[in-house]
């Protein structure tokens, strides 16, 4: 059971997380959905007790702020990108974390086997590919077999096959009863892994819902990015949400989840309220997306130019 109440984290003058709270039962899986800068990463760090922040977080009844060490013992953490001593060899890194978690080395070996990194023990961390690093991070998180796994955009630096494997592993873990909290901006991951979604925007919890509610028809979900006059963005997001759309308000416009054959709907909805959409781009279907998003935008631009 994870209970978060009134979590507030301020960096100098910026409110990174603003009075956010939620509950998550054992075995549950929670996605943090939001664009970059929405506060997902900060929230995760608050949950881990890495940042001191206002409010309370209880992990299985343990107050993270007062007994951070005990609380973190319950959690395996996978960062966006593994940052560990580059000089260290994979084997000695595993040994270190096994020691740190107070488990036998055999368990480290088993954990490496789980992520398919067995046999690479003598490689140095710096020589690992992005995908291998991420799998190492997962292996480390799994060493002590903790009941809760917290992941901060675990697939953002991976290609599609790497992503698929990580998602696969997480899915299995979920089936085994692990509690998952993960940040993501990929609808497919959220749909596959989460049973609840916290939609975050500028540090606030704007919506607590289910993936099904956000993307009613998961097979045909697409995202469209709308570019609106700067001043109107906020209002546009409100209007769209009132209209039942899943909206993500980030630095580069609004991203709206839509169904396959209704791409124009959000624009029409806005136009009806008197808000002009300057430009839009269609983000490809995430399921078979093995290209970086940059490519998508280039295509879009060439289309517009033509």
């Amino acid at each position: 059971m994870i209970e978060a109440r009134h979590i507030t984290k301020k960096f100098k003058r910026v409110l990174a997380v603003d009075d956010l709270g939620f509950d998550l039962k054992i075995g549950g899986s929670l996605a943090l959905w939001g664009s970059n800068g929405a506060g997902k990463t900060t929230l995760i760090r608050c949950l881990l007790g890495v940042f001191p922040c206002k409010g309370t977080v209880r992990i299985n009844g343990i107050d993270v702020r007062r007994k951070g060490k005990q609380a973190r013992a319950q959690i395996g953490y996978v960062p966006q990108e593994l940052a560990f001593h580059d000089d260290a060899k994979l084997g000695s890194a595993m040994r270190f974390f096994a020691n740190l978690r107070g488990v036998e080395l055999a368990q480290a070996a088993r954990s490496l086997h789980v992520v398919g990194l067995n046999g690479h023990e003598s490689k140095r961390v710096r020589d690992l590919s992005g995908g291998m690093k991420q799998r190492l991070a997962l292996a480390i998180a799994l060493i002590a077999d903790p009941p809760i796994i917290v992941l901060d955009e675990p697939t953002s630096n991976l290609d599609s096959s790497g992503r698929g494997e990580v998602v696969d592993t997480l899915l299995r873990l979920r089936e085994q009863g692990k509690t998952l909290i993960f940040a993501s901006h990929r609808p497919d991951e959220v749909i596959t892994l989460a049973d609840r979604v916290l939609v975050m925007e500028q540090g606030r919890l704007v919506q607590q819902t289910t993936p099904e509610a956000l993307w009613p028809s998961r097979s045909s979900v697409r995202s469209v990015r709308l570019f609106i006059e700067q001043g109107d963005e906020h209002q546009a997001a409100e209007i769209l949400r009132e209209g039942g759309f899943a909206v993500n308000h980030g630095n580069s416009g609004l991203t709206v989840a839509i169904e396959q054959h209704r791409k124009a709907e959000p624009m029409n909805h806005l136009a009806a309220r008197g808000i002009t959409v300057r430009d839009f781009e269609l983000l490809r279907d995430v399921h078979d997306d093995d290209e970086p998003e940059i490519r998508v935008r280039k295509e879009q631009i060439s289309e517009v130019l033509r």
Binding site: Q74, A98, N99, G102, V103, L105, A106
Partner: peptide, 15 residues
């Protein structure tokens, strides 16, 4: 020196 196959024992705490 790496102490191989050192099971870390003792001082386990139950929560």
């Amino acid at each position: 020196l790496e102490r191989n196959n050192t099971p870390v024992t003792g001082n386990k705490r139950n929560d």
